[in-house]
Design a protein around this nucleic acid. Sequence first.
DNA 1: CTTCCACAGGAAGAAGAGGAAA
DNA 2: TTTCCTCTTCTTCCTGTGGAAG
Length: 340
Amino acid sequence: MIVDDRVLREDFVPSEVVHRHDEVNLLSESLEPLLYGRRADPAFCFGPTGVGKTCIARYTLAQLREQEPAVEVAYVNCWQEYTRFRVLYSVLEAVGRTIDIHRSTPKDELFGRLRETDDRPIVVILDEVDQLEETAALYDLHRLGHVSLVLIANREEELFASFDDRVRSRLRAGTRVRFDRYGTDELTAILAERADKALEPGCISGEQLRTIADAASGDARVGIGILRSAARRATQQGRERVTDDVLEAAIPDARTAIRRKTVEGLIEHQRVLYDIVADVGEVEPGDLYDEYERRVDDPKTNRTLRNYLTKMVHYDLIEAVGERRGRTYRIIDDDAVGRE
DNA sequence: CTTCCACAGGAAGAAGAGGAAA
DNA sequence: TTTCCTCTTCTTCCTGTGGAAG
């Protein structure tokens, strides 16, 4: 039933975009200087999750490279690469200059190395850039004359609030590309496009695609996840096509699958914390720490737990309600996911 | 109103890891 | 091998805030 599995993966970049032509045009316009051997001003993509920011950025740069193959593109996801070192390293890796660089190479040397690679222009896409903990990396990259930046984040105000003054003033100029949530029709069209490429003809109906689009409430990532999971389930059960009950079962899958993946990425102590919050549902910090110490042999300190918790809040695994005294942590309820 | 308490989160540095150089 | 270097992670210490208790 599944003809081409790659099309349903998260990092798939389609060769045609559906419903985002204005955004593509705006972004490629801002990158135009690169065609004339000049550097482009920083470009920003803002919008909630699952609206195609990453996809459009990659797509636009793929297009650019067709016109100007000398341009190197480095894609860095700041969820994983959140230190100055890791960002610089990822960029070097993307342009193939990481030979003889190891984890204790001084950051300044990484920067120096990057400065030497100015024979070709580099476009650095920093995805989820609001997760970056050391904005010095932005400052570094901006200082390099052959590096153009494409920054992807949820909200402009929050992003700029996290910058220090030096970075903020430098990045104030630049193109903003804003992405709105997909409507059900748009998302249905996107899903139809993917289903067409990924699945055998006729194994999912337009009505079913619409159901998926509806359940995903504007989030293409979730929508595609549901489609993928429905197709897999149907295949496992040896069906010719996606039936309505298979689809029904696949809908909750997609969101929990994303969460499960994140939980698996947690280290042991973080998972204990997560489990406690999951067990209790809602818990006050003091009780949480006590319970944690009860469950673990060799407990980390309080301060470390607080770091873990903020990280987990960032990951959208748990939610912190209230500030300071009287704050509680709780599991995010699925109904609340999807609104911003 | 003042003092106390619970909590968040910044800063600095100690500990540990692992590769390079000697 | 040992020593050195720098990274990351965790801890220690500390400040600020706002509700509760006195």
